[in-house]
């Protein structure tokens, strides 16, 4: 039986790129800036869940007629939900922006779809994809804002 040497796979020298952290870091997550933003990104989903439930309550009220809807709008204008929305606004911008910043990097460099021309199978350059993603986000959000706010007929 041939046994491999225990160090057979050991790199010959230090790697060119830093490897990922193998173990949970010491100390509380707040003490490390990358851990902090990663965990805060996860914790921001509490605001996401809450906002989804607020919108759900709105749609439910809408189905209940005008009186129920007016009651819902009054609750929206109450101090609790007003404070929640003012606090949640930067959280949602950061949450969406962080995802869209990561999004281009998560796309495969090449997709194998037979009928597509060769040029279309390759991912656009990351810098271009990032610019297009952010431009679409800003324009799309502006459109949603204008529609929701009633500035368009």
């Amino acid at each position: 039986m041939v046994r491999a040497h225990p160090d057979a796979m050991r790199p010959l020298g230090p790697s060119r790129t830093r490897t990922s952290w193998p173990l949970r870091r010491d100390g509380w997550w707040w003490g490390h800036s990358r851990n902090r933003s990663y965990v805060l990104f996860g914790l921001a989903s509490v605001a996401v869940l809450s906002e989804a439930l607020v919108i759900l309550a709105g749609v439910w009220s809408l189905g209940g007629g005008e009186v129920a809807w007016d009651r819902y709008v009054a609750v929206l204008r109450g101090p609790a939900l007003r404070a929640f929305h003012l606090a949640a606004l930067p959280v949602f911008v950061w949450y969406g922006g962080r995802f869209l910043r990561l999004f281009p990097k998560t796309q495969p460099p090449r997709i194998e779809i037979g009928f597509l021309p060769e040029a279309w199978r390759r991912r656009p350059p990351l810098a271009l994809l990032a610019r297009v993603t952010f431009a679409a986000w800003i324009l799309g959000s502006a459109l949603v804002l204008v529609l929701l706010g009633g500035w368009l007929p």
Partner: peptide
């Protein structure tokens, strides 16, 4: 993530900030 990014900031801005 896309739904949150495109809808929630605008919704929060309208009912939280613009209405106020």
């Amino acid at each position: 993530f896309f739904a949150v990014a495109f809808v929630f900031p605008s919704f929060a801005a309208v009912v939280g900030l613009c209405d106020l």
